[in-house]
Simulated scan of single mutants.
Amino acid sequence: MIRIEGIAAFVATVENGSISGAARQLRLSKSVVSERLAELERSLGGALLHRSTRKLGLTEDGAAFLPRAQRITRDVAEAAAAIAERRGTLSGPLRLAAPVTFGRLHLGPALYPFLKAHPDLALTLDLDDRRIDVASSGHDAIIRHGVIDDTRLVAWKLAKSRRLLTASAAYLAEHGTPRTLDDLRRHRGIFYTNRGAADWRFRTAAGPVSVQARSMFGVNNGDMMRDAAIAGLGLAMLPAFIAAPAIKAGDLTAVPLDVAPDEEYLYMAHAQGRDPSAKLRALRDCLKEAFGDPPYWDAV
């Protein structure tokens, strides 16, 4: 007989990359997780994992079983949460992914009161600047800044995100202050590598226009983009939620172009075809209220 505890141990081991990680997530001893994995493999009649002293990998059977196992554990968790929600409480696991800088600066402070108000929730937050594939990663939702063009996702707008072209006073004194889009092409750019050097998009009377400047520095983290701009390496297109404190402190200047950067949004997105739980909807509403309209970080 296949037991749900064994399936949960298998999924947690794969998603954490180790039995130790699974034990920490499940709050069990390593020996209990190992026993549950062994019992599951006996029930299925074959090995699911390659075990070695250095790494753990999926067997062919394990790779085939994993998506179904993830779906089973998610369905059981959602069923338990649905019963709790019928009783007027939010409970059970919730897994999110979000960009590092936004998570640290703004998402965390908005989450903590929500979690305190709902102590039966068990939230796992993965901060990563990579583009997470929520349709296959096991996350309930992702927080994303910018355009979402994945048709497999349902996106909820959380807040507007004003973007600012920024530079240090020292850089502008040395290289001049650009006034037009043509001026930008002669300047050094600091770019977010997950978007590329064509990320400078502006609103014009003829519609959105992208400008490609000379790449001076590329990095996949907003904090480092801001710091590189403060160091005078070049111009950086930054969201106000990163740039505003540095502008207020006088470390950065918003470059006064004759056109404005294209407007963007912060989204919470979940996989299409998966009914969002009451706890996910409640979290969405909490974040929208915490960020405000217009969002508090836009007050530059």
Score class of each variant (00 low, 15 high):
Arg3Thr: 10
Ala8Phe: 01
Ala12Tyr: 14
Thr13Leu: 05
Gly21Cys: 08
Arg36Gly: 02
Leu37Trp: 13
Leu40Trp: 15
Arg42His: 05
Ser43Trp: 15
Gly45Trp: 13
Gly46Pro: 07
Ala47His: 11
Leu49Cys: 05
Arg51Phe: 12
Arg51His: 10
Arg51Gln: 12
Thr53His: 12
Lys55Pro: 07
Gly57His: 15
Glu60Thr: 09
Gly62Cys: 11
Ala64Tyr: 14
Phe65Thr: 06
Arg71Cys: 10
Arg71Tyr: 10
Asp75Val: 13
Ala77Gln: 07
Arg86Gly: 09
Leu90Thr: 04
Ser91Arg: 13
Ala98Asn: 01
Thr101Pro: 00
Phe102Pro: 00
His106Phe: 01
Gly108Ala: 08
Gly108His: 05
Tyr112Phe: 09
Pro113Cys: 09
Pro113Phe: 06
Leu115Arg: 03
His118Gly: 06
Pro119Tyr: 15
Pro119Lys: 15
Asp120Val: 08
Asp120Thr: 08
Leu121His: 08
Ala122Glu: 15
Thr124Gln: 13
Leu125Cys: 02
Asp126Gly: 03
Asp129Tyr: 06
Asp129Gly: 00
Arg130Cys: 12
Arg131Asp: 12
Val134Lys: 00
Ala135Trp: 15
Ser136Asp: 11
Ser137Ile: 02
Gly138His: 02
Asp140Val: 04
Asp140Asn: 08
Ala141Lys: 01
Ile143Asp: 00
His145Ser: 06
Ile148Asp: 10
Asp149Ala: 09
Asp149Glu: 14
Asp150His: 06
Thr151Met: 15
Thr151Asp: 15
Arg152Ile: 11
Val154Trp: 07
Lys160Ile: 06
Ser161Pro: 00
Leu164Glu: 07
Leu165Met: 12
Ala173Ile: 11
Glu174Thr: 08
Asp182Tyr: 04
Arg186Gln: 11
Arg186Met: 11
Ile190Asp: 03
Ile190Thr: 03
Ile190Tyr: 01
Arg195Ile: 09
Gly196Val: 08
Ala198Asn: 10
Trp200Val: 04
Arg203Ala: 06
Arg203Phe: 12
Thr204Gly: 06
Ala205Glu: 11
Ala206Asp: 13
Gly207Gln: 14
Val211Tyr: 03
Ala213Thr: 06
Arg214Gln: 14
Met216Tyr: 13
Val219Tyr: 02
Asn220Leu: 04
Ala228Tyr: 05
Gly232Phe: 07
Gly234Leu: 07
Ala236Gln: 04
Leu238Gly: 00
Pro239Ile: 08
Phe241Gly: 00
Ala244Leu: 10
Ala244Val: 07
Ala249Val: 11
Leu252Ile: 05
Ala254Asp: 14
Val255Leu: 10
Pro256Trp: 10
Leu257Ser: 05
Val259Trp: 03
Ala260Lys: 15
Glu264Thr: 04
Tyr267Gly: 00
Arg274Lys: 14
Asp275Tyr: 11
Ala278Gln: 05
Arg281Ile: 07
Ala282Phe: 00
Leu283Ile: 02
Asp285Gln: 07
Lys288Asp: 01
Lys288Gly: 01
Ala290Gly: 03
Gly292Val: 08
Asp293Leu: 03
Tyr296Leu: 10
Tyr296Val: 07
Tyr296Phe: 12
Tyr296Gly: 06
Val300Pro: 01
Val300Asn: 12
